[in-house]
């Protein structure tokens, strides 16, 4: 009963009054930011200082950049029709993404329904320029890759540990000789079925 009285005495501290979203705690606004698609998060950044800080904190948690999806989503509803048109703007838009996402460790080249993605060596110097601390590159669809391309990729990303090919044959390449443990851990995180470990980095 005493406990009830204590709780009741606290109950009247806050009487009914109108509440605006600006009165709500940061954790609620953060959740709203996190549910907001990327282009609209940019609008939120413009709302005021508080939203700017909160939206930036959401971006800061991002660890994977997916190309072209993340780039496309920044174009406020526009759809990137081809891989080349994405590459054309790659460095400029990627730079902004990277500025927003300092923790990014992985780059995922995703294929669209009508888009067969082949990684292009011309892209590697651009990746290098971005100074990303990439530990992993994932290519969703790739029929073949040669030693030269893997070496170029490893040079462009000095911290790169693994290269993952998702389709048509799931493969995981170990880029650094000392990254076996990373590979094993990565395999256990992958979907069942993607379990082959390619010991050497050429095929």
């Amino acid at each position: 009963q005493m406990l009830g009285n204590i709780l009741l005495s606290a109950a009247f501290r806050t009487q009914d009054r109108s509440i605006e979203l600006s009165d709500l705690p940061d954790e609620i606004l953060l959740k709203i930011c996190a549910y907001t698609p990327f282009p609209d998060r940019l609008s939120l950044e413009e709302v005021n200082y508080r939203f700017n800080t909160l939206t930036l904190s959401v971006w800061r948690k991002k660890k994977i950049i997916t190309v072209p999806d993340d780039l496309g989503s920044l174009r406020r509803g526009a759809f990137i029709p081809t891989w080349s048109s994405c590459l054309e703007k790659f460095d400029k838009s990627m730079q902004i993404l990277v500025n927003h996402c300092p923790l990014v460790q992985a780059l995922h080249f995703a294929s669209h329904r009508h888009l067969q993605v082949f990684i292009q060596s011309a892209l590697f110097p651009q990746i290098q320029q971005l100074n990303l601390q990439l530990k992993e590159v994932v290519i969703s669809h790739l029929y073949c890759i040669d030693q030269h391309a893997v070496t170029a990729l490893a040079e462009a990303c000095p911290l790169l540990q693994t290269l993952v090919i998702e389709e048509p044959y799931p493969l995981l390449y170990r880029i650094r000789p000392d990254s076996m443990q990373v590979c094993q851990q990565r395999i256990s995180n992958l979907e069942p079925g993607l379990g082959q470990l390619q010991e050497e980095n050429s095929r």
Binding site: K31, A34, Y35, K61, K63, T66, V182, N189
Partner: peptide, 10 residues
């Protein structure tokens, strides 16, 4: 965290 989960979105 080396998982492939992206944490930027709910």
């Amino acid at each position: 965290d080396d998982s492939d989960a992206d944490d930027d979105q709910e």
